[in-house]
């Protein structure tokens, strides 16, 4: 019995907080940035500023949630930006040709997951690196965009315009769009799936050590294919939200979005080698990107390219932080 207590003593207690350090750091960063904004610009304290961050980044949030699944398994999905664009394009073009909105929604929501599933299969069955397989997916989806049309297609459908213009708000005039609610719903569902279902836990196990996961009898291959499918689904939802937001489908929209998404996920505390991270962190990461943009817009003297530089700097800082606190299990 005495040695049992010695075992307890050997356990490394601070760890519980340790794995939350990246997320807490992101939260702190977000609060600091918000505080800076409020102290510098009077209008920043307006609640609508926060709501606007959500409105402007709702589709990014949804896509980042899907990317979180992929990165948690230690993979990466470069196709998300193109799939977002392709979904918007397909929706716009089908609506233009007069199909009913409900049918268009179904079709648009099927394309992303199908492509994700195929990429997942290529990765799992043929050992093609995720980077390359999803690069092909990226090329394909972007090519499809211009194949459909090389010019922007406006959307005039009633359902779309309603979704775009509907404001849900409080009596004082602050409001969010329906897209924000959809995005938050996706976040909640994803957080629930990751925490309370076997699939969710398998995602973490595969990212922690896929060899062990295999030996523990977990369905590694199925999980891996599934996360790319989930990411494809999230990209599809993101694409629809984007088409609500812009009321059009444009072949070159969301170019380079995958970088923002990956950056948001990493800044949100998810480890790029997999196995550690939270959807909640991803939300924070997206908010950080959104607030940076808002700050730069408010400033007026700073230019948009500072966004990229700051994001790059934050990426570096968080990757270094992850290394310093040693969240590497391999």
């Amino acid at each position: 019995m005495s040695s049992a207590s010695s075992t307890t003593a050997r356990a490394w207690r601070p760890s519980l907080a340790r794995r939350h350090v990246p997320v807490l750091a992101t939260l702190a960063l977000l609060l600091v940035m918000y505080a800076v904004g409020v102290s510098q610009y009077r209008a920043f304290s307006n609640v609508q500023v926060v709501f606007n961050v959500f409105i402007d980044n709702g589709f990014l949030l949804v896509v980042a949630v899907g990317m979180t699944f992929v990165i948690l398994t230690g993979g990466i999905d470069l196709s998300v930006g193109s799939v977002v664009a392709m979904t918007a394009m397909v929706s716009a073009s089908l609506l233009q040709s007069g199909l009913p909105a409900a049918l268009v929604l179904v079709v648009a929501l099927l394309i992303g997951p199908t492509l994700g599933f195929l990429m997942g299969c290529a990765i799992h069955f043929f050992d093609i690196q995720p980077f390359i397989a999803t690069l092909a997916g990226m090329f394909f989806a972007r090519g499809m965009c211009t194949f459909i049309s090389d010019a922007s297609i406006p959307i005039t459908d009633g359902f779309w315009t309603t979704m775009s213009q509907e404001r849900i708000g409080d009596p004082r005039g602050n409001f969010v769009s329906i897209s924000v609610l959809i995005a938050l719903a996706v976040v909640l569902v994803a957080a629930y799936v990751l925490t309370y279902t076997r699939f969710g836990r398998n995602v973490y196990a595969v990212g922690g050590n896929s060899q062990s996961a295999l030996l523990m009898g977990l369905p590694v291959g199925r999980t891996r294919i599934a996360v790319y499918t989930v990411s494809g689904l999230c990209s599809a939802i993101g694409g629809i939200l984007l088409s609500f937001y812009t009321l059009s489908g444009a072949p070159l929209i969301a170019v380079g979005m995958e970088l923002d998404v990956i950056a948001a996920v990493v800044i949100g505390g998810t480890v790029l080698t997999g196995g550690s991270g939270y959807v909640f962190g991803t939300v924070l990461g997206v908010l950080v990107l959104g607030v940076i943009q808002t700050l730069i817009t408010f400033d007026g003297s700073l230019n948009s390219w500072w966004t990229r530089i700051v994001i790059g700097g934050l990426l570096f800082a968080f990757i270094l932080l992850q290394r310093l606190i040693g969240i590497r299990f391999k």
């Binding site: 970088l259 390219w305 990229r308």
Partner: peptide, 21 residues
């Protein structure tokens, strides 16, 4: 000792900003 894909991602993102700067 950062994984190459991650390490160079930093400059991929920030570099565009630098070029525009």
């Amino acid at each position: 000792g950062i994984q190459p894909i991650i390490a160079t991602l930093i400059l991929m993102v920030a570099g565009r900003g630098l070029a525009q700067l």
